[in-house]
Design a protein around this nucleic acid. Structure first.
Lengths: 150, 150
DNA sequence: TGAAATCATACTGTTTTGGTAAGGATTCCA
DNA sequence: TGGAATCCTTACCAAAACAGTATGATTTCA
C-alpha cells in the first residue's frame, strides 16, 4: 500500500477538471500551471487516467482532458488505483505469505488487511464532486488573501 | 505513509516474543529461524525496537530480547512507528503543501489526512497480546497439517 | 502549413529498500 | 581463563522505485 506523488498530483488534476466540467476540454499545460505540477510528468499521469477510463482526451489544438463520468461517480480510490495499481497490502501479500510459510494461519496478515480496508473505505467514499465543491468554498473564502501568491 | 518489509518482519518478531513472554530472553537467531527473517536484517530491526523502548536486550550467551512492556500495552502502531518513523501522509505533507501554494485551503489534503487516520486507528487498536492469542489459536488448529513444512 | 496539443517511449539522477559483511563489546559457562 | 554465544555498530552494496526530463510522433484546428 503506497501513496506517492502520483496520487497527490493526479487527485489535484482531477479536482481541477471537476471544477471545470462545463468548460470543454482543459489542457494538461493549463492544469500544470495552475496546480504547480511538472508539465511532462502530468502528461504521463493523464495517460494512466485515460486508460482507466476516468478522463477523455481531445487531441490537437484546443484539445485537452475532461472527466469521462460524472464527478459524483468518480471516487478518490478510482484515481489512486488508476495511477498506482490496485491498493493491496504491500506487506504480507501473496508472495510473502507463501515465503513465511503460514498461508492463512498468520495473525499479522489480518492487521495489514484491516489497515488496507480502512484506507479503501475512506478513498472509496469520497467523490470528486464533493472535493470540487469543498475546494470551491475554500477558494472563495480565501480569495481575499490571494492563496496562490502566498 | 508507507508499510514495508520492516513492519512485516518487525511485527512477526514481536508476536513471536509475545507468545514467549514467560521464557526469558529469546535470541534473534531463534526468531529469525522460526519466522523466516534474514538474521542480520532482524538484528537491525531490533535496534529500532529497543531504542523505542519496546523490547529489552540481554547480551552475552543465553541472551536475547524480551518485551519491555506487557503485550497488552504494545500496539501495532508502536511497532510500525518504531521501525518506519511517524506514520504521516506521504503525500501533501508539510513541504509539499507549501509547494502547492495552498496551505490549509486544499480539499485534497483532507482526504490524505482521513486515510492516514483510518490506518492509525486500526494499528493503534490492535495489541500484541490479542495477536499473540490469535496466532496461538491458528497454530493449534493447523498443527496437524504441519504449517511450517508446507 | 504551422501551431497546439495529446500520445508513447526511453532515459536519468536520486533515494529507498532489503539486505550482507566485518568486526567489536559483553556475558555466560566449562 | 578462554571460548562461545549473543547483542551492538558501522559500513557497504545491488536492485528497485521515484520523480522527473527528453525526444519525437501523431492528431487537430485555424
Amino acid at each position: 500500500m503506497r501513496l506517492t506523488a502520483k496520487s497527490e498530483y493526479g487527485l489535484l488534476a482531477m479536482i481541477d477538471l471537476a471544477c471545470r466540467v462545463d468548460q470543454g476540454p482543459v489542457s494538461a499545460r493549463e492544469i500544470s500551471d495552475r496546480q504547480g505540477i511538472p508539465a511532462k510528468y502530468l502528461e504521463q499521469l493523464f495517460v494512466g487516467l485515460r486508460k482507466a477510463g476516468l478522463v477523455g482526451a481531445v487531441r490537437g489544438a484546443h484539445g485537452g482532458f475532461a472527466l469521462h463520468r460524472p464527478a459524483g461517480e468518480i471516487t478518490v480510490l478510482d484515481v489512486v488505483e488508476a495511477l498506482e495499481g490496485s491498493l493491496r497490502p504491500t506487506v504480507c501479500d501473496g508472495d510473502r505469505a507463501a515465503a513465511c510459510g503460514r498461508g492463512d494461519a498468520c495473525a499479522a496478515a489480518g492487521v495489514w488487511d484491516r489497515a488496507t480496508s480502512a484506507v479503501r473505505d475512506v478513498l472509496e467514499s469520497t467523490t470528486l464532486d464533493s472535493l470540487a465543491r469543498t475546494q470551491e468554498v475554500l477558494d472563495e473564502s480565501g480569495a481575499a488573501r490571494s492563496p496562490i501568491e502566498r
